[in-house]
């Protein structure tokens, strides 16, 4: 089954969309197909997925969530995103 990845930000509109686009670019380079969605932090806490990608700040508010969380601090840095995703997908 295709893996589902959530890109999470505060509102689920601006920054998570940038993160989602860059995650998709990295996945594309890695040759991995996955369903990437961008959502706000409160929706994310009620959703099931295989991996959540977000910043350290927002990861704190998702503590206790059963899904594995990958932290990315620089959403523009494709290398950092690649490192965060590797071994998790």
């Amino acid at each position: 089954m295709m893996k589902k990845i959530l890109a999470v930000c505060g509102l689920g509109q601006g920054t998570s969309l940038i993160l989602r686009m860059n995650i998709e670019q990295v996945l594309n380079e890695l040759g991995v197909t996955a369903d990437v969605e961008h959502v706000d932090v409160s929706s994310a806490s009620g959703m099931t997925s295989d991996l959540i990608v977000t910043s350290a700040e927002l990861a704190q508010s998702l503590e206790g969530h059963e899904t594995e969380i990958a932290i990315v601090n620089n959403y523009f840095d494709l290398d950092e995103i690649r490192q965060a995703l590797q071994n998790r997908i």
Binding site: G10, L11, T15
Partner: peptide, 21 residues
């Protein structure tokens, strides 16, 4: 949004992207 949700809008080194709905 910034005061309620916090500094998550700083998505790269030195770069902030404030926005609303």
């Amino acid at each position: 949004n910034f005061t309620d949700i916090g500094p998550y809008i700083v998505i790269g080194p030195g770069i902030a992207i404030p926005h609303a709905r």
